[in-house]
Design a protein around this nucleic acid. Structure first.
Lengths: 334, 334
DNA sequence: CTGTTAGCGCGTTCAC
DNA sequence: GTGAACGCGCTAACAG
C-alpha cells in the first residue's frame, strides 16, 4: 500500500505536483484535466493514501494536536472533561495528547515541557500550581494555552472554572434550611483555588444565617483522598462525641472516607444525617440519607475551553480572562 | 529562545555537528574538548533547546507516541486503565494519543485509521468489533498492536483481558451459597466477548448447583446504560411479582438502573436483597445490602498490554496470544 | 575532534 | 496543465 505522493507519482506516471494538487483538492484551481484527475483518483481509491503527518508538521509548523494535562486521568471529573474535549477535538481533526501530573508541580512542569516540545497547537491544563515555567511565561500566541478547573491568579492565560463560590453558597444555604444550627465542612486539599472558592461560598452562607464559629467547623487536610475524609470525620466524632447531624464534603473522595469512618465507629450511617458534597455521581442514589450535591458541567466547560483554544488572538483579548461555568444543585430524598 | 541546533551553531560559532554531539551526549565518544563542551552547554543553559519532534520523526520513522482507543474515556474502568498506561508510557518517554470510539464500529475504524496515519509506534485498542480494517489486517510488525478488554477471536493481535469466566464463576458460586435457590442475572451488552465470558461463568456455577432454568433467568439488553438496568429489573419484577431476593448485574451501570427501578417500584431497596455485580467501586460501600463485586486489575492489565507493546517481535511469537488477568472477588457486609 | 552532505515527505513558488 | 526545485530540522555516514 503506497503512502507517499511520490509513490503515486511513479505508479501513475504523473508528476508529484500534479498528484499533490488533486490530493489537496486544488485540481480546479490548477485546471487539472478531468482524465488526469480520474486516473489519479482511481489509483488512490484502490491503493489508498495517507499523509505523513511528521513531514506535514515539519513543513507547516503545526501538528494538529492538543495537549491535555490533568492531575489524575482516573478521576471521574477529569475523565468526563477529557471525553467531552475529545469529541470537540475530533470534529476539528485534532488529536489529544494526554498526560497526568499527579498533582506534582515538578512532574507537571516536565510533562508540560514535553508537550510543548512536541509542538502541540494548543495546551489545556488543570494546573496544580501557579505558572512557573519560563517557557510557558514567554508563550505569546502559540501554542494557545487555556487553564481550567483551578484558577491560580493572576494567570496570564484564559481560565475556565466551575462557579465554585456559587455552588458553595447554594448547597450550604439549602443544607442550613434543614440543619439544626450546625453544619460541618469536611475539607481536604484546601490550598486549591477551587476549594477555596467552595469554602468562601460556605462561609458566606453561614454568615447569612449567623452560624457561630464553633458550629461551622472547617477542617483542612492536604491530600484529597478517602483517608483525608476518614481522619476529618474521626476528629469531628471525637469533638462532638457522635457523628455530625449535618455535614458537607469538599469532594466525593472525602465523602467516601467520612462515611467509612462513621460506619466503622458507630456501626451504621444514621439515615437522618443530612449530607452535602461537591461533585455529583449516580451512585449517590444508593444512600438512604437526604443528599445534596453540586454537579459540575463538564461538557460546558470543555466547550468553553475549546472555544478559547481556537478563537483568534484578537477575540481572546476581548473575552474575559476568567470564565465561570454554572453548577447545578442536585437534591436526593428531600 | 533559540530552538534549532543550527541557531546554536551560529550563535556559538561551532559547527552543527559539534553542537549535535554534545546535545546527544556523544561528546566523549567523539572527544569534544572540555572547553568546547562548556561553551556550548553554557549557551544551552541560558537559551535552552528542545528537539523538533516532527523533524526527528520524519527522519527516524518513529514518533514516540502510543495510540489508545477505547469505547468511552469517561468510563471508570477505561479511565483507570488509561491512567496506568500513561504512567508506564511516561517512563519510556512515550506520549499517549487518546481517542474514543463510543462503541461505534465505523467511528472506531476512523480513529484507528487516523492514529495509524499519525504514525503511532504502538496502538492499544479496546475494540467494539472484530478486526475489519484492511490497514490493520495488513499490519505486520509496526506499529505494534495490542487489544484489551474484549477478545474478539480469532484476533491477529495479542490480547489482554480480565479472567471474566473465572470472575463469573466465583461470584455466582458465592452468591448461591447465600441465595435461596434462585439467582437472576441482569445482563446488558451481551454481544461483548467479555460479557459472554461472564455469562458462561455464571451458567457453569448454576449447573454445579443444579439451579433450574426458570430460577436463573438471564436477560439481555443491547445497550450498557442505566436504562438497560431499569428495563431488565422491571421485567423481572413483573414476572416475580416482587423484586428478586438475589441478583447479579453485568456492570455497575446496570446495577444503577436496577436499583433505581426497585426504589421506584417498591419504595425502597430491601436490605436483605443479596447483590452481585461486575466491576467494583468504593461507593458500593454505601449500600447496606450484602454486596459481592468482581474487581478488575487495571494496573496489571496495563502492565501486560505495555509489555506486549514493547517486547520484540521474536518474543511476541512465543508469548501466548491471549493473556488473562486474574480478578478479585470483593465482599461487603457478609 | 570538526565540517559537509544527503535524504525523510510535504507544501509552495516558479518555470515551461 | 505540468514538472522541477527548495527548505522545514533532524540523523547518520563520511571526509577530512
Amino acid at each position: 500500500m503506497p503512502k507517499t505522493a511520490e509513490e503515486i507519482s511513479k505508479a501513475t506516471g504523473f508528476s508529484i505536483t500534479t498528484i499533490r494538487f488533486v490530493l489537496n483538492g486544488q485540481s480546479e484551481k490548477y485546471r487539472i484535466s478531468a482524465a488526469t484527475q480520474k486516473r489519479i483518483n482511481d489509483y488512490i481509491a484502490i491503493h489508498g493514501y495517507s499523509v505523513n503527518h511528521a513531514a506535514r508538521s515539519l513543513r507547516l509548523k503545526r501538528t494538529d494536536t492538543i495537549g491535555l494535562v490533568v492531575p489524575d486521568l482516573a478521576n471521574a471529573y477529569f475523565a468526563r472533561f477529557m471525553a467531552e474535549l475529545e469529541i470537540l477535538c475530533r470534529k476539528r481533526s485534532l488529536l489529544l495528547l494526554t498526560a497526568s501530573s499527579h498533582d506534582d508541580p515538578e512532574l507537571e512542569n516536565r510533562v508540560v515541557t514535553n508537550l510543548l516540545a512536541r509542538g502541540v497547537d494548543g495546551l489545556v491544563i488543570a494546573p496544580c500550581q501557579e505558572v512557573t515555567l519560563p517557557q510557558l511565561k514567554k508563550t505569546k500566541t502559540r501554542p494557545a494555552i487555556v487553564m481550567f478547573d483551578r484558577d491560580y491568579n493572576p494567570s496570564p492565560f484564559p481560565t475556565v472554572v466551575s462557579d465554585n463560590y456559587q455552588g458553595g453558597l447554594d448547597i450550604t444555604r439549602r443544607l442550613l434550611q434543614d440543619a439544626d444550627g450546625a453544619c460541618y465542612f469536611l475539607c481536604s486539599h484546601s490550598a486549591l483555588p477551587s476549594i477555596r472558592d467552595r469554602v468562601r461560598g460556605f462561609l458566606s452562607a453561614c454568615e447569612e444565617r449567623g452560624i457561630r464559629e464553633g458550629k461551622r467547623l472547617i477542617r483542612f487536610e492536604a491530600e484529597n483522598a478517602p483517608e483525608a475524609g476518614r481522619q476529618l470525620m474521626q476528629t469531628l466524632i471525637d469533638e462532638l462525641g457522635q457523628a455530625p447531624r449535618t455535614f458537607l464534603c469538599s469532594s466525593l473522595m472525602v465523602l467516601e472516607g467520612a462515611l467509612q469512618q462513621i460506619k466503622a465507629k458507630t456501626g451504621r450511617v444514621d439515615k437522618n444525617i443530612l449530607i452535602g458534597t461537591f461533585d455529583d455521581h449516580a451512585m449517590l442514589d444508593w444512600l438512604d440519607n437526604r443528599v445534596l450535591s453540586v454537579k459540575q458541567n463538564e461538557a460546558a466547560q470543555a466547550q468553553r475551553v475549546f472555544d478559547r483554544l481556537i478563537e483568534p488572538l484578537s477575540e481572546r483579548k476581548k473575552s474575559s480572562p476568567l470564565d465561570s461555568v454554572p453548577v447545578e444543585l442536585i437534591c436526593r430524598n428531600l
